[in-house]
Amino acid sequence: MARRSPFLRLVLVLAILAIAGLAGIVGAHAGDAGPVIPKATGGTCVAPPEEMRRTHMSLLRHGRDLTVREGERVDGKGLAACVSCHAVSDGKGGAVTVSSPQHFCRACHDYAAVKLDCFECHASRPEPSNKASDAMPDGHPTAAVAALADYAREIAR
C-alpha cells in the first residue's frame, strides 16, 4: 500500500464518517416514523400540544400537591380529565387500560422509554359505565342532606 500523507488520511476518514452518518440519519427517518399518538375525544386541551408535550408532568405534579394536600380541586384539570379525554377505544365499547400499547400515554412513553408510574394508583381509563350499577343506591346528595337534617331535628327533640 502506498504511503499517504496524514492530511489525506484524515480527509479520507472524515469523508467515510460523514457518509456513514448521513446514511444513518436517512435510514432512521425512513424506518422510524415516531410514536403513533391517538386522537383525543374532547374539546380543547388545557394547553397547546407543544406545551403539553413538554410540561404535562410539571402540570400534573403541581396539581396533585394542591389537590391532595390543600384540597383545591378544579374540575376538568386533573389526571382523571386527561384520561377521559384521551381514552382510546378498545373496539368493544370500552377503553383500553395502560396495559395496552395503544394507551394514549404509553404511545409516547414507550417510544421515549420513560417509565410511567401514575397508573399504579390512578385509573388509566374512564370508569366503565356499567360499573355504576353496582354502586350503592345512590340517592341525590340533597336527599341525603335532607335525611340528615331530619335526623338532627329528631335528636334535638
Binding site: 382523571a80 394508583c121 385509573a123 381509563r125 374512564p126 370508569e127
Partner: peptide
C-alpha cells in the same frame, strides 16, 4: 387495575 377515578 381500574381503580375509581376519584379514589386512587
Amino acid at each position: 387495575e381500574d381503580q375509581k377515578p376519584h379514589a386512587p
